[in-house]
Nucleic acid binder design. Structure first.
Length: 963
RNA sequence: GCCCCCGUAGCCCAACCGGCAGAGGCAACGGACUCAAAACCCGUCCAGUGUGGGUUCGACUCCCACCGGGGGCACCA
């Protein structure tokens, strides 16, 4: 990379050195003057002069960065620059713009670093944030620094704990379709307006029984259910944090299903709303689809199959999306872990049984035990690799409620305990998995949907008339589903139901560096929420920050959270007050789990709004102003939320689903007016890079690569292999924003990154191309400032609209103004820059050797450039004689009169091929254009004497003569 | 295996509702400047839109199939 500072240059040329000086000066000035402070309607950030805030506002947000401490590369700030350009443009057109950035600083890396170095995670976190801020401040991002928050600050996580308590102290009223305070549930039971499930009166229940009923309905609850236990990390994980291969998404350690007592959040209560409200969001379709798949709603039915076992009389309930195919259900399959398996298993094999059904075992019990052992040992990965159907017969038979037929019951690992009821009715005729199993076990196959003529496949899953299905015969799939569901309900054999893939959110982690739970336990093991007055619960200091981790494969290990070691903190004497029955000072044990990293990022937009509020997480008036629904602007269904949220697509399900869930709970409980946190979501692309490996496969420095002809690449003479992907220190292809700023200035880096392509497209980094952006700024500077004297070279004589040459300039100028404004508003930053370069090139050509650039052009160029290259723009603006920053405008307006030309040139096509051109007045109507076109000599010759079959005139575009 | 997105000049990318394939940048080449080189300045070259069909007066744009690249889901009943 070459600096522009080499050699002799004119003293006032826009070089990296000059850019650096300008950038430091303006960054200092912005900070000093609080240029990017956005006032709130009320509270400590309201306007100092008591003025009302502008009605027109905009809330722009970047996804919460995690301050990693490894330093940024040029890819990281792509989105930050994008939002900054957008925010600056909106600020210049007069909107009150809230744009800031805080830190999501709890989490594993800081903790791991702390454990390795023995420093407190808080010190490494703070150092990392300092480093991160230094890097992004150099880019000139217009953040409201007063609003920076950090999830690890006690004043921040106090409110994270407060929100946890709101959720804890709430239940989901399925009839009202919203969360309500838990006290209202208790009141309903107490008043008798709600009855208990077993019909007993509330007053007859013991306190313990009452508490159990209440606790079981909270949106946060303790569960004994199977969880994802990761011994390698020493913690449990949420489903979302486990990869498809059954490993931890951080660290890639094996994850095991274990029964452990853990905090869960009832996100499933919101499944329908989380799904349905996607339609109200301005989000990329891709992300919506990912959330839809994750929630995985499917409509179907639960059907009960009576078991005819010699030992027990019970039912197996299955879930199916195809109840219409029940007449073709020729066997049942239970997940190996299904609780009914042991109960229904026959003691002896029935006579004359296929040997493949028994797995070679002497009794069903033995076969089951053997199969279960084998299934437990198979990892998720192995299960995926081989889709061969395996299973064993339980010896039991069930009755198909539709046919009355006896059908065998199997266990097989292709049925998952975690979905539906953990049991299926197998319909091989209409399900390929069942077909495969049926073939392997020689089971009966009955088609109940007629495949189309000539169908040669196996299972047929498409549309068609029902067959072999008694009273359903002839009906289409949808109709048959309705009829059979009604029949099942009428006969007490089942009911229509909705099933979700979404599971409740496992909310506890056995780590140190996270938010402590505002929960204590009495000696009897019962949890008690702390009253709000006891917040925050501060994270105690401990000698050892890491949990006990285990051999990654040690599935039988037990979690041992670090907080359990802080015995002074764990044992407390508290008076929980009236909420806990005024029991006075009691001894309690604190919860030693911490919240998952996602907790802090579930609500940070609300704290950005009111970062210093000590009375509430966020004043409702401020929330309504910045995030409230604006139906007049966004339509009647507008849920409200942040106006623009920019980040990578990798958070499509985790963060974005959790955050929506919390926000909806807060909405239901009346704490916020918006129903969604993020009205508009935009996924920025990634900056990627080429990396090069030598013959040994070792990465070599990308900046020293020489490109040879025929697509070959060499490093120090030896041929290397090129690969494309991430930018990173270990790949030796990392380029930092600091080195780019050193070489060209931050404005150049900003222009380059924004001009590389649309913000949502990934593209390769090319350091050699950056110079193009620098040349543009340099030329623009030269058009306004004399490089030798430093004097302004701008002429104040106004442009004369009646003079032909000035008119050309005015038209070029106003066309640019209109186009650039459009582009900025639509986030087409690359084309906005192209138009600015185009205008600048025009100015260079037209006025480069004249005494100077007309002031009107110079000012507009500077103002239009300001969002993307704010430092140089501010500098030029001040040299143009303005002492106020241009951060709040003005933004030039295009004048309509200069957007229209007097004449238009129409291309003339004959049969779709351009053959000639004709210039006509803009005012010419279609008939005149047609006449002018046909009168063209070249056209007349080509048309000859033929009468055109058709002449198409597209106003303003072209003429097409069809012969 | 299923679903989604993307293929335009040597490279990164424009082309708005189907209407002249080129706005911008890089590279290359030529010129100018220079004792010379770099930087800077001026100019030039370059594709018929991944492939094959279809619809249309007209297709980068719409439809179908295929190829290549990226992503998501993956025994979810």
């Amino acid at each position: 990379m070459s600096s522009t500072d080499d050699g002799d240059v004119p003293p006032h040329r826009y070089t990296a050195t000059l850019a650096g000086a300008i950038e430091r000066r303006w960054q200092h000035r912005w900070t000093e003057q609080g240029t990017f402070h956005a006032p709130n309607p009320v509270g400590s950030l309201r306007p100092a002069d008591g003025a009302a805030v502008p009605e027109d506002k905009l809330f722009v947000q970047d996804m919460f960065p995690y301050p990693s401490g490894t330093g940024l590369h040029v890819g990281h700030p792509l989105g930050y620059i994008g939002t900054d350009v957008f925010a600056r443009y909106q600020r210049m057109v007069g909107r009150n713009v809230l744009h800031t950035m805080g830190f999501d600083a709890f989490g594993l890396p800081a903790e791991q670093c702390a454990a390795e170095t023995g420093t407190h995670p808080r010190s490494t976190t703070e150092a990392n944030i300092g480093f991160f801020l230094a890097q992004i401040r150099r880019l000139g991002l217009g953040h409201d620094e007063r609003r920076r928050v950090c999830t690890t600050d006690v004043e921040y996580y106090r409110w994270t704990q407060w929100i946890f308590l709101q959720i804890y102290n709430a239940w989901y009223d399925t009839e009202a379709r919203r969360a309500r305070p838990i006290i209202e549930l208790e009141n309903e039971y107490a008043r008798g307006t709600r009855s208990t499930s077993d019909g007993r009166l509330w007053g007859e229940l013991t306190g313990d029984e009452q508490r159990k009923i209440i606790d079981s309905q909270r949106l946060v609850y303790l569960s004994e259910a199977p969880v994802n236990w990761c011994p390698g990390l020493g913690t449990v994980l949420a489903n979302e944090e486990v990869t498809a291969e059954g490993r931890s998404d951080r660290g890639n350690f094996p994850v095991f299903r274990r029964n452990l007592r853990q905090w869960m959040m009832r996100i499933t209560a919101y499944a329908d709303r989380l799904l349905d409200d996607l339609d109200r969001l301005d989000w990329p379709e891709k992300v919506k689809t990912m959330q839809r798949n994750w929630i995985g709603r499917s409509h179907g039915a639960r059907i009960r199959f009576p078991i005819d076992s010699p030992s027990t009389a019970t039912n197996v309930e299955v879930f199916t999306t195809r109840p219409d195919t029940v007449f073709g259900a020729t066997y049942l399959v239970l997940a190996p872990e299904h609780p009914l398996v042991t109960g229904i298993a026959a003691t002896q094999w029935p006579p004359g049984i296929y040997s493949r059904w028994t797995g070679g075992a002497a009794t069903p019990a033995e076969a089951i035990a053997q199969y279960r052992r084998a299934a437990a040992q198979r990892s998720e990965l192995e299960r995926q690799e081989s889709r061969d159907k395996t299973g064993v017969f339980t010896g039991a038979y069930a009755t198909n409620p539709a046919t009355g037929q006896q059908i065998p019951v199997f266990i097989a690992d292709y049925v998952l305990m975690s979905y539906g009821t953990g049991a299926i009715m197998a319909v091989p005729g209409q399900d390929q998995r069942d077909w495969d199993f049926a073939e392997a076990f020689e089971l009966q196959i009955v088609r109940t949907v007629a495949p189309p003529e000539g169908f040669e496949g196996q299972a047929y899953t498409g549309e068609g008339p029902a067959i072999n299905s008694s009273f359903l015969d002839g009906l289409g799939v949808d109709e048959a589903k309705k009829v059979i569901t009604a029949w099942l309900e009428a006969n007490g054999a089942g009911a229509g139901t909705v099933q979700y893939k979404l599971r409740d959110w496992l909310f506890a982690r056995q780590r140190y560096w996270g938010e402590p739970f505002p929960i204590v336990y009495s000696p009897d093991g019962r949890p008690h929420p702390l009253p709000e007055s006891m917040l925050p619960v501060e994270l105690p200091d401990v000698a050892d920050y890491s949990p006990t981790t285990f051999e990654p494969d040690d599935a039988d290990s037990e979690p041992a959270p670090p907080l359990a070691k802080a015995t002074d903190w764990v044992q407390v004497q508290l008076d929980l007050g009236p909420a806990d029955g005024n029991r006075g000072l009691q001894t309690y044990r604190r919860d030693t789990n911490v919240m998952p990293q996602w907790a802090g990022s579930c609500w940070y937009q609300l704290r950005y709004i009111d970062p210093r509020n000590s009375e509430a997480m966020c004043d409702p008036v401020n929330e309504r102003y910045w995030m409230g629904p604006r139906p007049q602007l966004h339509g009647p269904d507008d849920p409200g939320g942040v106006d623009l949220y920019v980040g990578g697509v990798e958070h499509a399900v985790l963060h974005l689903l959790y955050s929506r869930f919390w926000h909806k709970v807060l909405y239901d409980l009346g704490h916020v007016s918006s129903e969604e946190p993020y009205r508009r979501l935009y996924n920025q692309g990634y900056i990627q890079a080429y990396a090069y490996t030598d013959a040994r496969g070792v990465y070599v420095p990308a900046e020293e690569i020489v490109e040879e002809p025929e697509g070959r690449y060499t490093w120090r003479g030896q041929q290397v292999r090129r690969e494309y992907g991430k930018m990173g220190k270990s790949l030796r292809n990392s380029v930092s924003p600091d080195e780019m700023s050193d070489a060209y200035g931050a404005d150049t880096l900003r222009v380059y990154e924004m001009s590389m392509g649309p913000l949502d497209v990934s593209r390769p980094w090319a350091t050699k191309d950056v110079v193009g952006a620098h040349r543009f700024l340099q030329r623009l500077w030269r058009n306004l400032v004399d490089e030798n004297t430093g004097e302004l070279r701008v002429v104040n004589t106004p442009l004369d609209p009646d003079g032909q040459s000035d008119l050309t300039t005015l038209r070029a100028l106003h066309r640019t103004i209109a186009g650039v404004r459009d582009d900025y508003a639509a986030l087409r930053l690359n084309t906005a820059i192209a138009k600015l370069i185009e205008l600048n090139n025009y100015v260079t050509k037209r006025y480069g050797s004249s005494p100077g650039t007309p002031r009107a052009v110079a000012e507009a160029l500077v103002l239009l450039l300001a969002p993307v290259a704010p430092h140089i723009a501010e500098e030029l603006w001040s040299r143009l004689g303005y002492d106020q920053s241009l951060a709040h405008g003005p933004m030039p307006q295009a004048q309509e009169r200069y957007l229209v030309e007097d004449t238009v040139e129409y291309p003339i096509q004959i049969n779709g091929k351009v053959r000639s051109r004709v210039v006509v007045p803009t005012s010419a109507g279609p008939d005149e254009v047609r006449a002018a076109a046909l009168a063209q000599v070249r056209i007349a010759t080509l048309v000859d004497d033929e009468e055109p079959r058709k002449v198409i005139v597209v106003p303003g575009r072209l003429v097409n003569v069809v012969l």
